[in-house]
Design a protein around this nucleic acid. Structure first.
Lengths: 127, 127
DNA sequence: TTGACTTAGCGAAAGTCTTCGCTAGGATGA
DNA sequence: TCATCCTAGCGAAGACTTTCGCTAAGTCAA
């Protein structure tokens, strides 16, 4: 499996990535605090998951400091992009617009956000 | 687990649902033909998966005809809706608009589809 | 009836994901 | 030094998903 391979993060892995995306580079302790709060995860489990994720290339760690510091090796954008593509393929048979409409329908968007979507539409029209 | 419970179809289950959404109510044979073509699945496996899905309430079957006829018990829309919500929660922390933008970016939309998105935006503005 | 073929189902194996017990090293303060 | 606490890791258990071998019932034609 190459580094840029089709690594779909699993459920818990995604949960951990989210914590790292939000907190930025963090020691196990901080990641664990979140997981434990969310679902009573054991410290060992958090360590193990991070180690599994490291093998998969989903996170990296800096060992120069004593409590090692973990950081996400994939951005929220790239993970999201892949998951969206996957969802579109798996459920909508490639019809991304169906998903857009569903998502819009379920979104409670601010005027600013709506404006941005419009901007994007205009761009797409232009081409 | 209630009937309307949070049943996230698994990978293969989704694959089967897609076949049923596309073909409509079908005997195992037809579902299997697709799975087998896609990934060499054994007939027994298809039968088993359908039976598992039946227990989970993801498909129903009509036994009045001799080859039993299976049909999806969830619509593409409802499954999609749930998966979108899930994705939004898990990756975008509830910011559905981020997903919309991602999906738009990866979509190759027809003018008609773009128009529909606009219509939808107008509606949302109105409220 | 017999043989060939299709359909159905069970149970267990294989695979993957998640969890945690147990062990141990390193740091800190008494 | 010793006890305590924090950090790290391994390996195995447990849970869930997916696969398939084997069995058997039903259909149909020779």
């Amino acid at each position: 499996m190459t580094l840029s391979g089709p690594f779909q993060p699993t459920e818990v892995e995604l949960q951990i990535l989210r914590v790292l995306w939000e907190l930025g580079p963090s020691p196990v302790r901080d990641v664990h605090a979140r997981l434990n709060a969310a679902k009573g995860t054991n410290y060992s489990t958090t360590v193990k998951m991070l180690s599994v994720m490291r093998e998969k290339g989903l996170v990296r760690r800096d060992e120069s400091d004593s409590p090692h510091i973990y950081r996400a090796a994939v951005t929220r954008e790239s993970a999201g992009k892949r998951l969206v593509k996957d969802l579109v393929d798996k459920v909508y048979d490639g019809a991304a617009m169906s998903l857009v409409l569903h998502a819009l329908r379920s979104a409670r968007a601010t005027p600013d956000e709506l404006a941005e979507v419009r901007r994007m539409l205009d761009e797409m029209d232009g081409q």
